[in-house]
Design a protein around this nucleic acid. Structure first.
Lengths: 225, 225
DNA sequence: GAGCCAATGTGACTAAGTCACATACATTCG
DNA sequence: CGAATGTATGTGACTTAGTCACATTGGCTC
């Protein structure tokens, strides 16, 4: 239960579905809610877990990925402010085990809702139902995009796109990331990334340092696509 | 609008959400519904299409897949009796374009619901909302499985699994399928499938004929996994 | 500076995908 | 019947991707 008015305002800001006219839902929500903090690297859900709570992110980010038996990983999507670990929701509804791993990437602050409540509200509050449905739909589209990428695109293309996107979201020409992290996002192995980066470097498109990459020629990288 | 009582019974049999106590929904449903028939190979949705109707399958099957620019394909999932082209639903809700292609595989009979109604019912009829949510959730899980397979599993493993699964669902040791069809399902190219099948054949696990494969040694195929 | 650990580099090898064809089988049609 | 056509399959040569086993390097601690 959350009672602090300041806290309530902050959370309401985060989640549009709380800003509807219906005050009943808002009351129920804060009655059932609980705020938690998670540190970087902490596991949120592991493979095959049955979920007892639904987590709604207030701040920070989490990464949802698949882990192959060889130890390779591939990122399915990330969630941030205002979003939710919707796979949990999906598992709650369809009663299937959690098919991936969720780990905290940047320290998380989140609202926890017990699954029983989350389910119950689905049929009672349209705003809640729309929120969850929208999230699952978006994730489905994102994961389909991942399928498309790994099935049809070459790794060098995907890597160039990754670097550009990352530079844009960090709003910096220099990206702080290790080769292993990139490999885990793209679902390939570190060596492959290292080699392609080396090739990009030899073509003056980037320069690399331990743990960071400087995009020297974004134009050339774009042409790579 | 559907009025034929026999037709109504048949459709009700198909879709559990119509068998709830609430008669209001059932009335609305058959008022808005329309039955259509689609032949094999007919396109249902194409990439980027915005959907005007939601299709619920009474009989037959459809295949939802991604098409790469090289012409390669990969199957995301299939839908059959009682299911729905849920990507459509997903697009309706989140208002994004359809990110794949849906084609009729076995002659389809389906109920069409205009998107406006489908959306409207979401907040009014819990049974409908649960039905759609459940479908999207299942698809999300299926597509995540596809990601896992193409990212981490070797093609020969996936092919062996494919053959076994197919034999089981067809309930026959002999599978009627071309190498190209398999390649399109698994998201690889025909040559790769041909070569692996040839290898399986040389190891006495299968025997092949134009357009069909006989699983001689399912035990050995399973061990392949 | 020694020791340690994470990050990166590299060669050799296997698996997968591409391209350009060659065959083979089935059906239709003259 | 045999030729023509179209689909299905086979194959070699080549490129790209992934694996494995290490070597090297940079930064940190003690």
């Amino acid at each position: 239960m959350i009672t602090d008015p300041q806290q309530i305002d902050r959370i309401t800001d985060c989640f549009g579905f709380l800003r509807r006219k219906d005050p009943t839902f808002k009351r129920h929500f804060f009655q059932a809610a609980l705020v938690v903090h998670l540190d970087k690297q902490q596991s949120i859900c592991h493979e095959g877990m049955s979920c007892t709570h639904l987590a709604l992110v207030i701040s920070g980010t989490a990464r949802i990925f698949k882990l192959g038996e060889s130890g390779r990983e591939i990122t399915l999507y990330r969630i941030g402010r205002g979003e939710s670990c919707i796979l949990t929701a999906s598992c709650i509804i369809s009663n299937t085990p959690f098919p991936a791993i969720a780990v905290c990437e940047e320290a998380l602050e989140a609202v926890l809702i017990p699954t029983a409540e989350a389910q119950n509200w689905m049929s009672r509050f349209p705003a809640w139902q729309e929120y969850l449905f929208g999230l699952v739909s978006e994730r489905l589209a994102e994961v389909i995009t991942v399928v498309e990428e790994i099935a049809f695109r070459r790794v060098d293309y995907r890597l160039a796109a990754y670097l550009l996107k990352r530079a844009e979201s960090d709003n910096s020409r220099v990206i702080k990331v290790t080769h292993q992290e990139i490999a885990s996002d793209l679902g390939t192995s570190r060596e492959v990334i290292s080699r392609i980066l080396k090739d990009f470097e030899s073509r003056q498109m980037i320069s690399t340092n331990r743990g960071s990459i400087d995009l020297l020629d974004t134009r050339a990288l774009s042409n790579q696509l």
